[in-house]
Design a protein around this nucleic acid. Structure first.
Lengths: 143, 143
DNA sequence: TCTTGACCTCAAGTCGACTTGAAGTCGCAC
DNA sequence: GTGCGACTTCAAGTCGACTTGAGGTCAAGA
């Protein structure tokens, strides 16, 4: 079985080694042993990391993801949970879509101030009631 | 001009008073004076709060929003910035849409383990490369 | 007049996901 | 056998947007 050095895993998975250590501490991944001090990983860790990345993208917290990993055996990913998450995403998507459309309109609108644009105002009135969701927070990953 | 008590503003805007104080400290809003100790607000603050809420939803940070507010005069909301934000939202929306579809599929898929479902695997392979964005973080507001 | 309760200030705490720093240890090339 | 650079640990720091807590003040009702 191929053993990967932490540096290689980091490089292939596109995350810093510190993140791998952090994930290990959280119980999300496990190293296969050490060569000297250095962690060695089984190639399967890459799949796990992909699963973690995917889960994060879908909006699961690291703790939630950790719960899906059962020691030995395939990850227990409840279909209901997936479906619920899909629903949640769907709601966000619709809200964000509406927001995007209004932003586009406001950007193109000829009203002297956005506050005088009816479309923008409608958006604004909606915002008060908290009808819109909190934003798509962008990956702090990209630095 | 109608003067609103902080409690009333909080209630109407749907945010705790502590948030109003915090926003004031950040220079996002201003109170109109005090009655005793208590802040009094001009009714216009509600529009401002709506604008802030909207900005946050669109993914602007409080600092970015603060920059849009010029002392006296309508908020300077650059159309280019709006358009760029719309683009950004659009990208997120497309990515989240793909994710939602795959989650739905995986939820319905008959493969014994998600890892054996081709659609899920495709998703997984995409995730490694960081092709997908970070998630729509839901409002901590809802408690 | 006294009490009450809603506000006030200022500092510190929270949450999640990591990152950073200091000080130490090892494998490997020379 | 020695130097070096990449790893190691552990604690603490960071970021954004607020919240919480302690101790204080004040307007209004009884």
């Amino acid at each position: 079985m191929t053993e990967l050095d932490i540096a290689e895993v980091a490089q292939r998975a596109g995350v810093p080694a510190s993140t791998l250590r952090f994930y290990e501490e959280k119980g999300l991944i496990a190293s296969n042993g050490r060569r000297g001090l250095r962690r060695q990983y089984d190639a399967g860790v890459l799949e796990r990391l992909a699963l973690i990345a995917l889960g994060r993208t879908a909006g699961f917290s690291l703790d939630e993801i950790a719960q899906m990993f059962v020691p030995d055996g395939p990850p227990r990913i409840d279909r209901q949970v997936l479906a619920a998450k899909a629903e949640e995403l769907d709601r966000s998507i619709r809200e964000l879509g509406a927001l995007r459309d209004s932003l586009r309109h406001a950007a193109a609108c000829s009203a002297p101030s956005h506050l005088e644009c009816p479309t923008f105002r409608r958006l604004l009135d909606g915002a008060v009631s908290g009808a819109v969701a909190r934003p798509a927070k962008r990956a702090p990953r990209s630095r």
